[in-house]
Amino acid sequence: MTNDRAIPPVRPDPESLPFWEAAREGRFLIRRCRACAQAHWFPRSLCPFCWTADTTWEQASGHGTVYSWTVLRAGAVPNIVAFVELDEGPRMLTDLVDVDPDAVAIGQLVEIVFCRTSDPDGPPVPMFRPR
């Protein structure tokens, strides 16, 4: 799945590498704390809520709803930026793809789709489309 816009590449770091390696396999991971049981976004080694290091990767449903959205019209291709509230709880900054800007609404059900960046060797990035 691709977005018509040239997507800037990501540069994984040691903390995020497992996320991006899973993304190459089409798996969407989030990070959850075993001490306080909370899932968070974006993934961190130390839980952002309790600062314990007892956090772990888990495969997320990839489902969520649109919390807010906007359309950037300055580029050649309109870009829909959104916050998606994951079914697991956290709200995540992302883009919406495969949808007409006039058909987007808050509360809309969406699902994950991985989109290639401008770096052919880099990992794809998680975006969302209507489901």
Partner: peptide, 29 residues
């Protein structure tokens, strides 16, 4: 480049106007 949030934001191309537009949309809702 090493800011921890860059890799979770930059691919999505969120300029300043979009950041405030997201807030405006949610407030309207």
């Amino acid at each position: 480049a090493a800011a921890p949030d860059v890799q979770w934001e930059y691919p999505y191309a969120i300029p300043t106007a979009a950041s405030y537009a997201l807030a405006a949309r949610r407030h309207m809702h």
